[in-house]
């Protein structure tokens, strides 16, 4: 059981011959994503400065790329791909549900506190 690995990534688009080869393949992919992130962070393209859902498009791109990286680290380095569906869901759904919930509450409240200061109801700078 533990010795069998699923060797395809990108939904079967790329199939590796051995587990070792897959590890190097995933490393190359993760490196490319990191390089793209750093490049975007330094260049900061003007076209990505527009706001989308309260945040710059560039920041959304960073977050999405991060989640992509997290997926491949979990699925291929941590061998989540080889675990049963039930274990995958137990780990991933629990975490995602609670994190989204927490993020919503805290970011919403943070934005509200900012507005309270910004509209001048409370002074913070004397």
């Amino acid at each position: 059981m533990a010795h069998e690995h699923k060797l395809e990534i990108f939904r079967g688009l790329v199939k590796f011959k051995s587990n070792t080869q897959k590890i190097w393949g995933v490393l190359v992919f993760l490196t490319i994503v990191t390089v793209i992130e750093v490049a975007l962070g330094i260049v900061k393209p003007e076209s990505m400065m527009a706001k989308f859902l309260g945040m710059k498009i560039l920041n959304w791109v960073f977050i999405i790329l991060t989640i992509v990286k997290a997926y491949y680290i979990t699925w291929d380095f941590m061998h989540m791909r080889d675990e049963t569906k039930a274990l995958q869901r137990m780990v991933v759904w629990t975490a995602i549900f609670l994190v989204l919930y927490l993020l919503f509450i805290l970011l919403q409240e943070g934005g509200y506190v900012f507005d309270v200061y910004d509209n001048g109801y409370i002074k913070k700078d004397f």
Partner: peptide
């Protein structure tokens, strides 16, 4: 996540 969300809170506040 709790720590990072708290960071997000403070960042949104300022």
């Amino acid at each position: 996540s709790g720590f990072l969300a708290a960071y997000g809170f403070s960042r949104f506040k300022f």
